[in-house]
Design a protein around this nucleic acid. Structure first.
Length: 583
RNA sequence: GCCACCUUAGCUCAGCGGUAGAGCUACAGUUUUGUAAACUGUGGGCCGUCGGUUCAAAUCCGACAGGUGGCUCCA
């Protein structure tokens, strides 16, 4: 290969690498059955049905075999076959998963193509795989790769199908890029919210209540600051907060339809010998609240907000950190509108979300519009108008979005805001959903200007989503170094030695009285150690006081973000722009 | 729920058939410190739980619990 050779297509290279993986696995396990092996972000995977389960020690052996194949510089040759011949061939070699794939393709009219690997010198056939391509020309063009992990995966992603063994790999053009990527993964692990949560004393989990967070005092501060911020916005945006029960007679869930659709995910209990449950969501409670009074068109939009804790009995395997929990709290609201107010209200929600995501937290996010699923309630006209309302609002807000056809809730279409965690996994945070069904089920009404009863439309919306999940993402976003308004400890006063403790306490009291969350580190440690401790707990401001500061009645302020130190007066410090809250 | 792996001191981890280890933390003393680790000493463990194999189990096997990575799910 010459160095001036045109850049290989990275996806073709990764896909070729997955074929090399399959060939290597087939060498080790001739009876292996191949499923699919596509490229993914930063790499590829391949699913196999193998005679035994793989162990982690297998990966280096497979990798070694792969390196041999790359060294042989086998050629990739594309061949097309009629579907019948392809099936006949695949059946002959016992590749039943591939047979199934071709059968699925048969009627699509798509050409059935195979890629064969042959030795460059004698043309000896080494491996052949059903594949759409494209591939690189020769295995020698595959750059640096590494097999990452083994996982189980259902054939065609359906849990009724047999579970296959999936091997994940990563592949880059150069060794340097691969190393850089592996380093990035290491760095990402350092900002994992579970690790930082423990290191910074924010929260813990306990075996005794899997899937539920114990917020420690410092984590509780962050949680409550988020609530304070939201409440201040609610005041401005005319939301009305309510407090609702957690336990409900099952009759409520029967009325809402959850008993039928969601019972398996609810924690059931007994109340006065009646089946009851902890609420997994707030909607029905708010329908009840709506019905507690009569409503005029003048009341609408009526925005009911609730921070009630919700319990969902998620299957154990789905739990993970604070991103997927059993007990959580949403910044939930149900907005009751007249149909003609719908589009404007959706726009209000989107503006609110945009304000939070962009101006307050500076997140990168992706927005997705989910439309009518197969199983749904309501008329096609209603769905179409709701989908149109969501689409128009997104366009007006100038938010780019993708459409996820058929992924809406059974009661209406929705807009999701998704944010990636440190490991690049996407999590749904904000959601804005239109619902025509719940108002009908609960027979909600308002009196129109015509004096007649009308049915309102409900907008379900949560902007942070679950506060637990949002906090997890915030922790990773800031790598634990929160903006001052969220920081559990905002300033730490560090006396240079015991002699200056009095002055330190005096400074601390002034800061404390002005509302700052501050502490004095009067431990018997060197200043260097105190700085180190403060740095590790990511305190935004370290205020050093010693002989000079006592004499000049001022402070030396070390800024966590900039690592710079500046001498200033107490008043001056309290005036800092960064100390201002967004509420 | 499914597949794989993991679980040792408050935290991070070593030990992997022969009487339980380190660093940090905690506590006590010395030191009085000027911007990322002062020094000395002392604590601290049913080696996740239960069962099995063995003369002997943190170590091997099994079950259970919890966690992690995937899959499925995620109103």
């Amino acid at each position: 290969m010459s160095k001036v050779e045109k850049k290989v297509d990275i996806d073709a290279m990764r896909h070729s690498c997955s074929h090399v993986l399959a060939q290597a696995v087939l060498r080790m396990f001739p009876e292996a059955k191949l499923a699919i092996g596509p490229t993914i972000e930063n790499g590829f995977y391949y699913d196999f049905d193998l005679p035994r389960t793989l162990i982690p020690e297998d990966l280096p052996l497979i990798e070694k075999e792969m390196k041999n194949i790359v060294k042989q510089n086998q050629k990739f040759i594309r061949k097309e076959e009629p579907a019948d011949k392809a099936i006949e061939f695949l059946k002959a070699v016992g590749q039943n998963y591939k047979v199934e794939l071709v059968e699925g393709l048969k009627d699509s009219g798509e050409a059935i193509s195979f890629y064969e690997n042959i030795m460059p010198n004698d043309g000896k056939a080494m491996f052949v795989d059903l594949c759409r391509g494209p591939h690189v020309d020769q295995t020698g063009q595959i750059g640096a790769f590494k097999l990452m992990k083994i996982a189980g995966a259902y054939w065609k992603g359906d849990e009724k199908n047999p579970m296959l063994q999936r091997i994940y790999g990563t592949c880059f053009e150069t060794r340097e890029e691969l190393d850089e990527y592996l380093k990035q993964l290491e760095e990402a692990k350092k900002r994992d919210h579970r690790r930082l949560g423990t290191a910074l004393g924010l929260f813990q989990f306990h075996d005794i209540s899997p899937g539920s967070v114990f917020f420690l005092p410092k984590g509780t501060i962050i949680f409550n600051e988020l609530l304070k911020f939201l409440r201040s916005e609610y005041r401005k945006r005319d939301y009305k907060e309510v407090i609702t029960p957690l336990i409900y007679n099952k009759a409520l869930w029967e009325q809402s339809g959850h008993w039928e659709h969601y019972k398996d995910n609810m924690f059931l209990l007994n109340m006065d010998d009646i089946e009851a449950s902890l609420k997994p969501m707030n909607c029905p409670s708010h329908m009840l609240i709506y019905k507690m009074e009569t409503h005029s068109y003048r009341d609408l939009p009526l925005r009911i907000a609730d921070f009630a804790m919700l319990h969902r009995n998620e299957v154990r395997g789905a739990l993970g950190g604070m991103t997927r929990v059993r007990k959580f709290c949403q910044d939930d609201s149900h907005i009751f509108v007249a149909e003609e107010q719908l589009e404007q209200e959706i726009l209000n929600c989107i503006d609110f979300a945009k304000f939070i995501y962009e101006e307050i937290f500076d997140f990168t996010y992706e927005v997705c519009l989910s439309t009518k699923p197969e199983k749904s309630m309501g008329s096609d006209e209603q769905w179409a108008s709701a989908e149109l309302a969501l689409e128009k609002a997104l366009e007006k807000a100038k938010i780019p979005f993708t459409v996820n056809a058929g992924d809406g809730a059974f009661y209406g279409p929705k807009i999701d805001f998704r944010i990636k965690d440190s490991l690049k996994r996407e999590w749904q945070c904000a959601t804005v959903q239109v619902d025509f069904q719940m108002p009908l089920r609960f027979e909600l009404e308002f009196e129109g200007s015509d004096g007649k009863p009308h049915t309102p439309v409900v907008v379900h919306r949560a902007l942070l989503g679950s506060l637990e999940r949002f906090m997890a993402i915030l922790i990773e976003h800031y790598a634990g170094a929160f903006p001052v308004w969220l920081a559990p400890v905002q300033a730490l006063v560090l006396p240079v030695s015991e002699k200056f403790n009095d002055y330190a306490n005096e400074v601390n009291k002034t800061l404390f009285d002005s509302g700052l969350r501050c502490e004095v580190d009067s431990s018997n440690e060197t200043l260097g150690k105190k700085i180190r401790n403060a740095e590790m707990s990511k305190v935004p401001y370290m205020i050093v006081v010693g002989e000079k500061e006592v004499a000049d009645k001022n402070l030396t302020v070390r800024d966590y973000a900039t690592k710079k130190q500046e001498v200033m007066g107490l008043e001056e410090f309290l005036e800092l722009e960064t100390l201002k809250k967004p509420y």
